[in-house]
Amino acid sequence: MKVVVCVKQIPDPALPGELDPSTNYLKRDDKLILDESDSYGVEMALQLVEGAGGGEVSLVSMAPNNEVSGLRTALAMGAEDAILVSDNALAGSDALGTARVLAAAISRLSPDLVLAGVESSDGYTGTVPEMIAGVLDIPSITFAKQIEIDGNTVKVQRQTEAGYDDVECQTPALVSVTAGVVEPRYPSFKGIMAAKKKPVEELDLSALGLDESSVGQSGARQETVRVTEAEERQAGEVIEDEGDAHEKIVEFLGELKIV
């Protein structure tokens, strides 16, 4: 079984981020790390392959400046190899452009299953996985909390507000994995050392056979028109307790329909 996981490398959320004023996109010039929301997909893929008693987990990523730091983390967890697509012409790509690139990289690997996080922690569009499935013309299942492979069928418990639905489809398929449904393993010391030697194939647009006009800023149909500061939260109401504070608190919670 071959599982491909889409992995995004993002600026460290623990550090203050900065927007490029000319594009309104997040600056990605410094070291990038593995998006935590993708670590669930990697873990799920490793568990599926381990459960199947064999197989291979490969990664695909699109990042500027040939950045591989985040990929190395996922390789240290246990993935076998990776494809990194890096090309100056990809700057300013929207969700569909990104999906086209990742789909082109994935199709080189002919996987049985493609996994992705539900949404990235920096862009939050939540649309790239389904667009990849669309470009590849394979079925897509979203919000997976559990995945099982049975022959040529992928069976998924799909999380809903009320619980979960049991859904299934034929492979190859793309499944987006809900954050938190598995416990991503820590890269071990030996895993980290081994990851340095694992192959990362670096490709540009021409290697993927993609036209510059379909991706990057020139191919983008989406534009970030304006960025505004989030409104500061208003100060809360202070209640001086004159013996009836509890009633006012209950009333307040009642208005919020909490009690």
């Binding site: 983390t73 820590y186 890269p187 010391f189």
Partner: peptide, 14 residues
């Protein structure tokens, strides 16, 4: 070295 940075990061994660 890259190894030392990787070791630091690995231990920090744990």
């Amino acid at each position: 070295s890259e190894d030392h940075e990787a070791i630091r990061e690995g231990v920090r994660r744990v």
